[in-house]
Design a protein around this nucleic acid. Structure first.
Length: 289
DNA sequence: CAGACTGTTTCGCA
DNA sequence: CTGCGAAACAGTCT
C-alpha cells in the first residue's frame, strides 16, 4: 500500500481534480469497502483534501468528510469525462507481488469496489484487490486519526521529539518502532528500510542502544527519505498508482528495499533480509551497524 | 501442488 | 512492555 509519500502524492493530485466538484452519485460495488451512509455526501461539494499519516480526508461543504485508507492494495484513479481509461503500464520493472496485469485493464473492472460520479461527468474509481482498504463517510474524522503519532514532515518533528521517542521506547527494535503509527505516523515497510540504510543503523538495533549521533542521523534521514520519495511521486512496486494512472518513480532509487541478493549501491556488499515483527527487513550488513 | 510471500492495521495472547 | 501470529483477502512466487 501507499505509505506517506504515496498518500501525499495522491492528495496533491486529487486536490486539483476534485476541489469544487459536486458528488452526483456513488456506486458501492463492495459493501464492506464502504463505512457509513453514502447518501450523506451525494449532492455535496468537495472543498478540500488533507492527509494524516497514510489517511486521506476529503472535506465536503455539508460538514461531512470522506475518510480513506488504501491499506495494502487500494488505488484511487480519476478519469475525466468520456476519456479512455488512463491505467497503462510503463517501463517499471516488477520485482514481485502483484503484477500490473490484474489492474491494467479498462475501468471499472473486477477489483473496482467504489465508483464516484461528479457533476462535470468525471469519475473516481476505488480499486482494491485484497479488500483491506476502506472509505468512510463521517462528521467526526478525528476518530480515525486521534491515535496517531507525530507527522514526520511537520514542524513538530524535531530532534527533541526523536530523543523523546527513543527514551520512551528503549527496548523496542528500531525498525518496528519506526513503523508504529501511534509513535511516528506514515512510515511503512519500504521507507523504514530506506531510512535505516540512510542512517546506517541495523533494523534489529534497540532504540535505547542508539548513540546520540545515531539518533541525530535518524532524525535527519526520516524527512530526507520521505521528501525524496515525495519528489519522485512515491514508490510503485506493483499496485500503487497516482490518481492520473501513472506510476511513482521511487522504486528505481530504492537502496535496499526489494534488493535482496543484489549489491549494495554504496559499498557493493550483498543486501540481506530478515524477518522482524512479521515483516521483511532489507539491510546492508556492511553499511549498517 | 503446497506453502510462502506481499505496500497495513488491529487484536489477543505469551 | 515487547513481540508474535492471526485475521481481513487475493494473487504470485518458489
Amino acid at each position: 500500500m501507499p505509505e506517506l509519500p504515496e498518500v501525499e502524492t495522491i492528495r496533491r493530485q486529487l486536490s486539483r481534480m476534485l476541489v469544487g466538484k459536486r458528488v452526483k452519485d456513488i456506486e458501492v460495488r463492495n459493501q464492506r469497502s464502504f463505512l457509513g451512509e453514502s447518501r450523506k455526501i451525494i449532492g455535496s461539494k468537495i472543498i478540500g483534501l488533507t492527509r494524516r499519516a497514510k489517511i486521506l480526508i476529503i472535506k465536503l461543504d455539508n460538514n461531512q468528510f470522506l475518510v480513506i485508507h488504501l491499506k495494502m492494495t487500494g488505488q484511487l484513479v480519476w478519469q475525466a469525462k468520456s476519456q479512455k481509461p488512463k491505467v497503462k503500464s510503463n517501463k517499471v520493472d516488477i520485482v514481485g507481488g502483484h503484477p500490473d496485469k490484474v489492474y491494467n485493464q479498462s475501468l471499472p473492472h473486477q477489483y473496482t469496489r467504489i465508483i464516484f460520479a461528479f457533476d462535470d461527468g468525471s469519475q473516481l474509481y476505488f480499486n482494491d484487490l485484497r479488500k483491506f482498504g476502506w472509505l468512510a463517510v463521517t462528521n467526526r474524522p478525528e476518530k480515525y486519526i486521534e491515535h496517531l503519532g507525530v507527522e514526520p514532515l511537520s514542524p513538530e518533528f524535531n530532534i527533541g521529539k526523536v530523543q523523546e521517542i527513543v527514551a520512551q521506547n528503549p527496548r523496542a527494535k528500531i525498525k518496528p518502532l519506526l513503523m508504529k503509527q501511534e509513535v511516528i505516523a506514515g512510515i511503512g515497510n519500504i521507507y523504514s528500510d530506506e531510512i535505516l540504510l540512510a542512517a546506517r543503523i541495523l533494523p534489529t538495533r534497540s532504540a535505547g542502544d542508539l548513540a546520540p549521533e545515531e539518533i541525530r542521523a535518524l532524525f535527519v534521514a526520516i524527512p530526507q527519505i520521505l521528501k525524496k520519495a515525495l519528489k519522485m511521486g512515491g514508490t510503485s512496486r506493483s499496485d500503487y498508482l497516482k490518481p492520473d494512472g501513472s506510476k511513482g518513480g521511487f522504486m528505481d532509487y530504492a537502496m535496499v528495499y526489494g534488493r535482496r541478493g543484489q549489491p549494495c549501491k554504496l559499498c557493493g556488499a550483498t543486501i540481506k533480509t530478515l524477518k522482524l515483527a512479521g515483516r521483511t527487513a532489507h539491510f546492508c550488513p556492511v553499511c549498517q551497524r
